[in-house]
Amino acid sequence: MYNKGTIIPGLIIFVLFVTFPIWFNGLKAGTLPKPELPPGGEKKCVMPVEYMRANHMQLLNEWRDNVLRDDNRTVVTVEGKKYRKGLQMACMQCHSNKEKFCDNCHAYTAVKPYCWDCHLTPKEAALKEETH
């Protein structure tokens, strides 16, 4: 073998790059995130759990267009309780702890939804209510 001096380091860099996850994780798979269920004890969501796990972002988008663009602000009723369509007005009513419910999984999968750039978490909303 020739040019060992550059080829072997090159190959090592390549292998390290490809196996990056292995040594980065150090064989620790980490804990699977578990979103906290509503503290209020609600059992039923607007859609089945499986659907919500896979499609909540699409549902939110749909709602958004309903409310903002189609002027379709029909109310969602779950177990007799009425909710206005909207992240703050519906979802966060039950899932009031964003950190434990949303961020848990989002951080795990590096999903950074831009919802919270504008929408207020219950915690944030409460913060400036008190000072007033």
């Binding site: 206005r84 909207g86 703050q88 007005m89 831009y114 750039d117 504008c118 929408h119 207020l120 219950p122 944030e124 909303a125 409460a126 913060l127 400036k128 209510e129 000072t131 007033h132």
Partner: peptide, 16 residues
């Protein structure tokens, strides 16, 4: 700079 939050309405972000 928002004095008081209306929790039923969003705020906006920079650049909007």
């Amino acid at each position: 700079y928002i004095k008081k939050y209306n929790k039923d309405f969003p705020s906006r972000m920079r650049g909007v």
